[in-house]
């Protein structure tokens, strides 16, 4: 159980790191939002699952938190993306520097 919990925590941390690397490498705002949303959402979920395995008494609260994250994180990303789109930020094209 301890090992499984550690694996989940590690995977979650790696996904969050990946989100950060993605933020640095991606060429424009839309791709950055994509990289940050996907990796950090699953990363947070993995970390919470890991915590749940370490502290089985907390599972009900953790399920509620996972639910909130899964529901609100994409809404936040879409709202940001829409704001940039409405402000006229163009999509980066392949071959552009």
């Amino acid at each position: 159980m301890r090992l499984l919990a550690d694996l989940f925590l590690l995977a979650g941390a790696l996904l969050c790191l990946l989100a950060a690397v993605g933020l640095l490498r991606m060429p424009d705002v839309y791709n950055r939002i994509q990289a940050a949303t996907k990796a950090s959402t699953l990363g947070s979920v993995f970390i919470l699952v890991g915590v749940g395995l370490l502290e089985p008494g907390w599972w009900a609260k953790l399920v509620a938190i996972i639910g909130f994250i899964l529901f609100t994180s994409p809404v936040g990303s879409s709202t940001l993306a829409r704001a940039f789109h409405r402000a006229g930020v163009a999509v980066w094209q392949k071959g552009q520097s």
Partner: peptide, 24 residues
């Protein structure tokens, strides 16, 4: 789908050539 999407994103972020062809 969420898991697949993370593998897909990880591959793109980590490949040196940054394989993207975005559009709306």
């Amino acid at each position: 789908q969420l898991t697949l999407s993370n593998f897909d994103m990880a591959r793109r972020i980590l490949s040196p050539s940054l394989p993207l062809d975005p559009g709306m």
